[in-house]
């Protein structure tokens, strides 16, 4: 836990006239898992999407404040380079309608990295990292859309790992998965923590408690409380956090 992988300073975001993030000061430590919890519409996904500028794809979004990636001002970073360093896994697994192999080498193709041999090695390494190599090594040319939801989500994580990101953003990655698959993906996250910094948005509080080292609780666009997960879940300082985690609303 050396430094900050991500940090925001007085981050405000507006969708048109709607004030979606209210002066958020948030931080993510390197090589840790940080989770963002809060009821639907609290801005946790919006905050997550700020870190690789996915909000740019939406019309009518305005932002002020500063975001630091490894203490570099994000404004100074090239968006392509940023998205390569800060990868994202989505709520619904979104493999492309190509073969497993084509999915996995997509990032390398886009960034024009590596020889044929390097690509093959990367595919194996990344599939091993997500625990899919044994299952898929003979099915590399079969269509990715035919896989199970859990395998698809793992494949999407593997696809991300091929471009060697430093930070992985996960936007409710388990909401399309059954409880057993969810547990396995959680184990994978803990495994990945050794090499990557992970920020996860979840509305499953047990999940946040199980996997994360730090937790932020958001409500109506405000970061209400941030701290070590054990502290947030056992002795929250804010009344609203306590109400939420004890299930009084949300």
């Amino acid at each position: 836990m050396d430094g900050y992988a991500l940090r925001t300073e007085k981050l405000n975001l507006y969708y048109g006239t709607m004030h979606a993030l209210l002066s958020v000061n948030f931080k993510v430590f390197e090589n840790s898992i940080t989770s963002l919890i809060g009821p639907s519409g609290c801005g946790k996904s919006t905050l997550l999407r700020c870190f690789n500028r996915m909000n740019d794809l939406i019309d009518d979004v305005r932002m002020d404040g500063t975001i630091f990636v490894k203490e570099q001002d994000m404004e100074m970073l090239d968006i392509i380079e940023l998205r390569k360093r800060v990868g994202m896994v989505f709520q619904r697994p979104n493999p492309f309608p190509f073969s497993v192999y084509e999915n996995l080498i997509y990032g390398l193709k886009v960034h024009d990295i590596g020889s044929r041999k390097y690509k093959q090695e990367t595919v194996e390494r990344c599939l091993r990292a997500v625990g899919l190599w044994e299952d898929l090594k003979d099915k590399l040319s079969s269509p990715a859309l035919n896989l199970s939801e859990e395998t698809k989500q793992r494949l999407c994580i593997a696809r991300l790992l091929t471009v060697e990101p430093e930070i992985i953003l996960l936007d409710e990655p388990c909401s399309a998965l059954d409880p057993i698959a969810t547990l396995r993906v959680e184990e994978l996250m803990v495994e990945l923590k050794k090499n990557y910094t992970i920020l996860i948005v979840t509305h499953n509080m047990q999940q946040a408690a199980r996997v994360s080292d730090y937790t932020g609780f958001m409500l109506l666009g405000e970061l209400v409380e941030f701290g070590e997960t054990s502290q947030i879940f056992t002795s929250p300082k804010d009344k609203r956090t306590e109400d939420y985690i004890t299930g009084r609303f949300g």
Binding site: L57, M88, Y106
Partner: peptide, 17 residues
């Protein structure tokens, strides 16, 4: 689906890519 586009952008692909 929009999710395909998002998946591609999220890996650092440009719009034309």
């Amino acid at each position: 689906p929009r999710t395909y586009r998002e998946g591609s952008f999220a890996m650092g692909a440009t719009k034309w890519q």
